[in-house]
Design a binder for these strands. Structure first.
Length: 378
RNA sequence: CCAAGGGUCGCAUAGCGGUCAAUUGCACGAGGCUGUAAACCUCGCGGGCUUGCCCUACGCAGGUUCGAAUCCUGCCCCUUGGACCA
């Protein structure tokens, strides 16, 4: 597979493919980054899915970085709200979880640079110059609209630091010389800010080999659905409301059983998948359901298939191997695959994929780090 | 700093001297029904048990009262407005 395909496969959006082609054609050094708030347990959406892309990037010869966004987590009041705690968890548990996940899916943790926000910002005049410069080139309204990155709606009680979040996020990209900014679809507004201000920066612009200012390419991956039922009926919503719904439905740590963590035990995996919302194509009322909002199907086509390239499903008419999402969806829609069959298959696959991570966290330092995190949460 | 309003069991709401472990909705949990889940129905939803009582609870600390989530005082925090702006 060529570089472009490796870099873009299984993504939901590339901003823009043309810019990416130019980077590749000009043999620019490709520098990737993905940032994570240090916010608690690492789940499949942030952990697995992102690491799968990191593997692709590594295979394409891209330099990969994981940014441990402790300041951002602090701004967003994660964990106990204290920067010190967040920092500690970041370099401890969080880093450990990503290393284990990268290993489990065959990526190389040693080729991934982990950068802690606090370290990046320490004594870094140019960073703060860039923050101000990004801010000077972004309107208040635009910044406000970007706040939903934080998973919160802008309300009366919003403190000002929250407005700094997207500005800092955009600045991170430039300060780390990142030309491939990778994140979930929910982060696109911050990336768009970065692209919009790219040509106006003077202190730390993003440059190509010829020292010309360029915009970072933004790579956005699918947001895995949480395992719960959609809070509203998709059929009755407008396009914009559908986007909101999508955001509401993404896997979230705050909804305990709607997400699976990278180090969940085989029995936890089974329990959670069995509880998952998974409507058949037709309800008994004769009404059709929207497969787009079926989390188990979503996980199968966006997680299992990209990772394993196929999935075995035992149906009442026998076992069948699926290699692409089209045939799988087709059989699900035609009730050849029963929801229960799909669940059983997904449970098996996930247990297998996640087992090394589970084991990794069963003893020694990783276990201790996880224990400490659980303690803070309680 | 001033003024007004406000802080109730995860969230949101009601209560405004005893009938309040505190209303209602959501969320959550258990069971029933489904080849899964959802929907639906029933129950539970501060803790402990000998199931009636005990303990701990309505921002924090005191006070008034036989009795306070409810009244008073002080403090903390939030919201909105104002004042200040060399």
């Amino acid at each position: 597979m060529d570089k472009f395909d490796l870099i873009t496969q299984n993504l939901e959006e590339v901003l823009t493919p043309e810019e990416l082609k130019i980077l590749i054609d000009n043999k620019e050094k490709l520098v990737h980054y993905i940032g994570f708030e240090i916010s608690g347990l690492v789940h499949l959406g942030s952990g697995l899915l992102s690491c799968m892309k990191i593997k692709d990037f590594q295979e394409a010869g891209v330099q990969t970085k994981i940014f441990l966004a402790d300041w951002h987590a602090w701004i967003n009041e994660k964990l106990d709200g204290k920067l010190e705690t967040i920092k500690k968890i970041g370099v401890g548990y969080f880093k450990e979880a990503f290393i284990a996940t990268l290993e489990a899916i065959g990526a190389n943790p040693k080729k991934t640079e982990f950068i802690l926000g606090s370290d990046l910002y320490h004594n870094a005049d140019k960073y703060w110059l860039t923050v101000v410069e990004v801010a000077k080139n972004t309107t208040l309204a635009r910044t406000q609209r970007s706040i939903d990155i934080l998973g919160k709606k802008l309300g009366e009680g919003t403190d000002f630091a929250k407005l700094m979040y997207p500005i800092m996020q955009a600045s991170d990209i430039f300060f780390m010389d990142v030309n491939l900014a990778h994140a979930g679809m929910d982060q696109r507004k911050a990336h768009v800010i970065a692209k919009n201000v790219a040509n106006n920066l003077s202190f730390k612009p993003l440059l190509n080999k010829n020292k010309q200012k360029i915009k970072p390419v933004a790579l956005h991956q699918h947001l895995l659905l949480g395992l719960g039922k959609p809070p509203r009926d998709p059929k009755e919503l407008s396009k914009e409301e559908l986007q909101d719904l999508r955001a509401e439905m993404k896997m979230s740590k705050s909804k305990p059983d709607t997400c699976i963590f990278v180090h969940d035990s085989p029995s936890e995996i089974e329990r959670k998948i069995m509880k998952a919302y998974c409507p058949p194509p037709l309800l008994s009322s004769g009404q059709a359901t929207d497969i787009e909002y079926n989390p188990v199907v979503d996980w199968t086509i966006n997680l299992i298939l990209p990772l394993k390239n196929n999935i075995n499903i035992k149906t009442q008419s026998g076992a069948k191997n699926y290699k692409n999402k089209e045939s799988l969806i087709n059989d699900y829609q035609n009730e050849i695959i029963h929801p229960m069959d799909l669940k059983e298959a997904v449970i098996k696959e996930l247990q297998q994929i996640l087992n090394p991570i589970y084991k990794h966290f069963q003893s020694g330092r990783p276990q201790k780090l996880l224990g400490e995190l659980m303690h803070i949460k309680a």
